[in-house]
Simulated scan of single mutants.
Amino acid sequence: MKIAPIVHAIQKAKKGGKEMDFRLIHTGQHFDKKMSGDFFEQLNIPEPHANLEAGGGTQAEQTAAIMVRFEQELLTNPTDLVLVVGDVTSTMACAITAQKLGVKVAHVEAGIRSNDWTMPEEINRLVTDSITNFFFTTSEIANENLIRSGVEKERVFFVGNTMIDTLLKNRERFVAPLIWNEVGLSDKNYIVLTLHRPGNVDQEQHLKLLLNEIILNSNSIPIIFPVHPRTAKSLQGMGIAAPNLHFTEPLSYLEFNFLVEKAKLVVTDSGGITEETTVMGVPCITLRDNTERPETITIGTNELIGTNPRAIKPAFEKLFNGEWKKGSIPELWDGHTAERIINSISALFEV
């Protein structure tokens, strides 16, 4: 979702006469078809020039496999710039590898911080931003984080959010998943639930308490729960069931956002989903103690309620009483972020 608009912006610039090209490298970190392959097809991303097939294993094993294989990729196919997105293991591993080979690095979605070092993503962000050359940011808060850490202002480019480029471009293409008709869902009369963070799903008793509170306070409207592979392992044998709780496989991008756009509420521990709910004006509850996307709370429709199951009831009451905030859209989340990124790179390299 983050790379698709950048690819399209490069292709457009090339057609417009810019001497610019790209190689798209899939590290293989995400190898589930619904969580990787479908995105290429649905978002019109060309097939990767290379797939490093480095998925599976521990954090360290993944990082090592990506670095070894990406180093060979760069040695075989030299480049002027490595552009990495987000905060996954691949982001950090590829940034380190590029810098050790003397290749400049640009980080898209730089500067966001949860200040929670128990999150692998936070370590990835900190390491990546400590060795990045050019920083493309989603918010003024991210800009401030980078400046405070000692990054020179001229290396920080406030461009907006490529996730929102993808959302706005594809919004008219959203498609109902099978579960829409199977359950008989209707507009603004169901809840979408996603959980995948270790703190929420790895401890069976805690996960059970969260789900029971969500079910108890749902006013019996359907709860649609696309289950992340990590969460599926914890749910096995737990025996959680309710007439209005409906589990489903991970959904494709177009199917999932169809559900989100029409939901009465989204309950999640994902950062990216809170950005999408903010732009679509959908109430969102985040089951985390911190967030790297505070603008979704201060400006958007998201509320951070922590991981204590007891916080669920008052939040749900607020929603069902019609007291949820309206929210608005953060600056530059307008669908043109990728164009600004490519224009900035063109100027930096005088293309």
Rank of each mutant, 00 (worst) to 15 (best):
I3V: 15
P5C: 07
K14W: 02
G17A: 02
E19S: 15
E19P: 14
E19Q: 14
E19W: 02
R23N: 13
H26R: 12
T27V: 03
D32I: 10
G37L: 07
E41V: 12
Q42V: 02
N44V: 12
P46Y: 10
P46I: 01
H49W: 11
L52T: 08
L52R: 01
G57W: 09
G57H: 08
T58R: 02
I66M: 09
M67K: 01
E71A: 14
P78L: 05
D80T: 01
L83I: 11
T89L: 12
T89Q: 12
S90W: 02
M92A: 08
A98H: 02
A98I: 01
G102V: 00
G102L: 07
V105H: 02
V105C: 07
A110H: 04
N115T: 09
N124Y: 06
R125F: 06
D129Y: 06
S130I: 00
F135D: 05
T137C: 10
S139M: 06
E144F: 07
I147T: 14
R148K: 15
R148E: 13
E154D: 15
F158L: 14
N161R: 03
M163P: 05
D165Q: 08
L167W: 01
R171I: 15
R171M: 13
R171F: 06
Y190D: 06
L193P: 05
T194H: 02
L195W: 02
H196V: 08
R197I: 03
L209R: 15
E213C: 09
N217D: 09
I223W: 06
I224S: 03
T231D: 00
K233F: 11
K233G: 05
P243V: 05
L251D: 04
Y253M: 04
F256I: 03
F256N: 05
A263Q: 01
A263S: 13
K264T: 06
T268V: 10
S270M: 02
G271V: 07
E275R: 08
M280I: 03
V282Y: 06
L287W: 00
R288F: 05
N290L: 01
I297R: 10
T301A: 11
E303K: 13
E303S: 13
P309W: 07
I312R: 08
A315Q: 10
L319Y: 09
G322H: 12
G322S: 11
I329E: 09
D334L: 10
G335T: 08
H336Y: 14
T337S: 14
A338C: 11
E339L: 04
I345K: 08
I345G: 04
S346E: 15
L348D: 01
V351K: 13
